[in-house]
Design a protein around this nucleic acid. Structure first.
Length: 644
RNA sequence: GCUGCAGUAGCUCAGGGGUAGAGCACAUCCUUGGUAAGGAUGAGGUCGGGGGUUCAAUUCCCCCCUGCAGCUCCA
């Protein structure tokens, strides 16, 4: 007899060899009906596999909030899709088909080597074939053999042979959908749902290219993406999420609201339209003021600098293929991909006393990086962008305090924009690093100390630091729970060494200083892209390019509407007038489309009474108010950076 | 950079070997209106660029550019 411990802590005694299915049946008929797999001591297993020893057991049922259930269902769905593909495209070799749990969009994929091209137009056919397989409701069966046997079975299949060679353990398993030797079978460690009928709520989503083992020198494969859920509601929720992603796409919003555009004349660069430029401007005003309030000075360094600087900084060796560079009158130049070398040139040009440290030099520098073609994506990955960069020159014993201050700064900024949920990662000394162990210890201790003092939970990435020093990265979480890396604090003693940066200490001896590189927003472009998606274009009032629109009701109010817009503009509110010869319904609709925070409709009534009829973004009728009261309200929202 | 797919009016898209169409947007006129689309008329396109096949190419083929989805990268 063996003792099985259930998730609620209770125990059951069963004969050795009892299966998950039998265990479920002993608990309740409903559970037996519902069960798709079990988790045995933390490992997912098929329902039919015998349990041979005392263990903690959980019965997995189809629930969309259970990652284990989704894992099994999606994995099984990938197998069903594989069978459908092989039926429709005979000769297709299967390569690798894992479930995905982290991805917002896709739930699984299967890389296949098919004799012909499969396009998205073929997905409905494949899905229809899958429906047949699901209707046949054939059982998933597990077959185990030794590695040698498995290799014999897979002769002629380079992909699966490779998978077997790399597989852990000595037992290799195959899963059949139906009868062994007759129906579809795939090498797989499992587990799977009891039968193909358990895969119901799925969707095939996309086809894309991929490579065997991600290596472009190896075979080109086709990757078929799909998703599957435990319930119809789960699938529906996913459809809604997909629609939401499309609705929030910053590229579409940027075009619709006339904020920015992209053109072949400068691929990978945003062209900021007048309204979008206001966003850029407001953001720089904000970050400048925030830096000034925290003891920063601002510097500006050249865009084009001579090559020898980049050679000295190490960028020429490590970053050359992403740099724009050229010759001019037999001199070599490069366009800056980073601001640090320029900052260092300024620092080097003077003598520095310990009394002056730390020096915090911010630079809103525009940098160019030639990201390769396939990597460029809207504002989120561009080739030219403004960094809210800063370099802090400090004594080694000041690093921790500076890091503490910076952490506060970062959280403050994110909170201002409505991002409360920030994920922090600390990356430490990589295998290939430079600088002394002493330096590394000091820097890592400083960052760790700062995180501890701020009581911040973080993820540790051992060995993931930059070669010149450890770093803290800040990822903010948007309304769809997506994480975006924005801020970073990097300790650097490489630059101070290379450029011989020193300060005169109390004893009048030159001492080596430490440099911190930091960004908070990261890049203006990227940060604005994230903001736009987070708010679906309906940004907080203080950021909106147009904050108030005044709509005339009839021709009689043309003058009054224009005058009101003027008055608001004069009072520091970004306002415009909608004087078109159109009905209010249309003007309201357009104001909503343009995400205008406040729409004021001026009719005879308002002109006569001197009051304003105010409508807030999103069906909010704010009633009538006096112009002074409205102005006061909007100006307070702007000043206080109120969130919607 | 690699793979696949795409590029037709400002936007979203239809079409198809015989030099082009819709809706929205835009302009003008009618309407003078009360909180998510009033009506009419009109203007707008070397069908991404270059080459090839053809009597004829926007349509078929090749190359390039750009975009999208992935892969890979992400000091």
């Amino acid at each position: 007899m063996i003792t099985l411990t259930l998730p609620d802590g209770s125990t059951r005694t069963h004969p050795e060899g009892v299966t998950g299915r039998e265990l479920a049946a002993s608990l309740s008929a409903a559970l037996a009906r519902e069960a798709v797999a079990i988790k045995l001591n933390g490992r997912l297993m098929d329902l039919d596999r015998p349990i041979r020893e005392d263990a903690a057991v959980a019965i997995i049922t189809p629930r969309d909030d259970d990652a284990d259930a989704l894992y099994v269902i999606r994995h099984s769905c990938a197998h069903v899709m594989a069978e459908a593909v092989q039926r429709l495209y005979p000769g297709t070799r299967l390569v690798y088909g894992p479930p995905l749990l982290e991805d917002a969009k896709y739930g699984f994929y299967y890389d296949v080597d098919a004799p012909e091209a499969i396009t998205v137009d073929d997905l409905p056919r494949i899905a229809a074939e899958m429906e047949k397989i699901i209707a046949e409701d054939r059982p998933f069966g597990r077959r185990e053999m030794s590695r040698e046997e498995a290799l014999r079975c897979l002769v002629g299949d380079p992909y699966k042979t490779d998978n077997v060679t790399n597989a852990d353990g000595d037992v290799i398993s195959f899963y059949t959908q139906g009868v062994v030797g007759q129906d579809f079978e795939d090498l797989c460690m499992g587990p799977h749902v009891p039968s193909t009928g358990w895969v119901r709520h799925f969707k095939l989503q996309n086809v894309a290219g991929s490579y065997w083992k991600g290596d472009e020198n190896l075979s080109r494969l086709q990757r078929l993406y799909g998703n599957a859920f435990a319930t119809a509601a789960g699938l529906q929720a996913h459809d809604r999420l997909m629609a939401e992603l499309a609705r929030r796409d910053h590229r579409r919003i940027g075009r619709d609201l006339d904020w920015f555009s992209f053109h072949p004349e400068a691929p990978g660069h945003a062209f900021w339209h007048p309204r979008g430029t206001i966003l850029y401007q407001v953001l720089s005003d904000y970050i400048r003021a925030a830096c000034r309030a925290r003891g920063y000075e601002e510097v500006r360094t050249p865009t084009v600098l001579k090559r020898f600087l980049w050679e000295r900084s190490g960028h020429w060796d490590n970053y050359k293929d992403k740099m724009y560079h050229f010759e001019r009158e037999r001199e070599s130049y490069a366009v800056k991909p980073m601001n640090c070398p320029g900052s260092v040139v300024i620092f080097q040009a003077g003598h520095h006393s310990y009394r002056d440290l730390p020096r915090r030099w911010a630079e809103l520098g525009f940098v160019h990086r030639h990201e390769s073609g396939g990597e460029v994506q809207g504002l989120l990955r561009v080739r030219g962008f403004t960094q809210d960069d800063a370099h802090i020159y400090c004594a080694p014993d000041q690093v921790e305090d500076e890091a503490v201050t910076l952490i506060d700064f970062v959280f403050d900024v994110y909170r201002t924009f409505g991002f409360e949920n920030v994920h922090v990662e600390l990356s430490t000394r990589p295998e290939k690093h430079m600088g002394s162990a002493e330096h590394w210890d000091l820097s890592e201790r400083a960052l760790l100390g700062a995180l501890a003092r701020k009581k911040i939970d973080y993820k540790l990435n051992p060995g993931e630091g930059a070669f010149y020093g450890p770093k803290i990265d800040f990822h903010l979480t948007d309304c769809l729970n997506r994480r975006w890396q924005c801020g970073t604090i990097q300790v650097d003693f490489n630059f101070p060494e290379k450029f011989d940066l020193t300060y005169a200490d109390r004893d009048n001896q030159p001492k080596r200083l430490v440099m911190l590189h930091r960004t908070i927003l990261g890049s203006f472009e990227r940060f604005l892209g994230i903001l736009i998606e987070h708010y679906a274009g309906a940004l907080p009032v203080w950021l909106m390019p147009v904050q108030v629109r005044v709509a005339s009701l009839t021709e009689r109010q043309l003058g009054a509407a224009a005058a009101l817009a003027e008055r608001l503009s004069g009072a520091g509110v970004r306002a415009e007038a909608d004087l078109r010869n159109e009905k209010v319904g249309l003007k309201v609709r357009d104001a909503e489309r343009d995400k205008i925070p406040y729409l004021i409709v001026l009719g005879d009534r308002e002109v006569t009474s001197g009051m304003l009829a105010v409508r807030g973004r999103g069906r909010r009728d704010l009633g009538t108010m006096a112009p002074e009261a409205f102005l006061e309200h909007v100006r307070r929202e702007i000043a206080e950076q109120t969130l919607p």
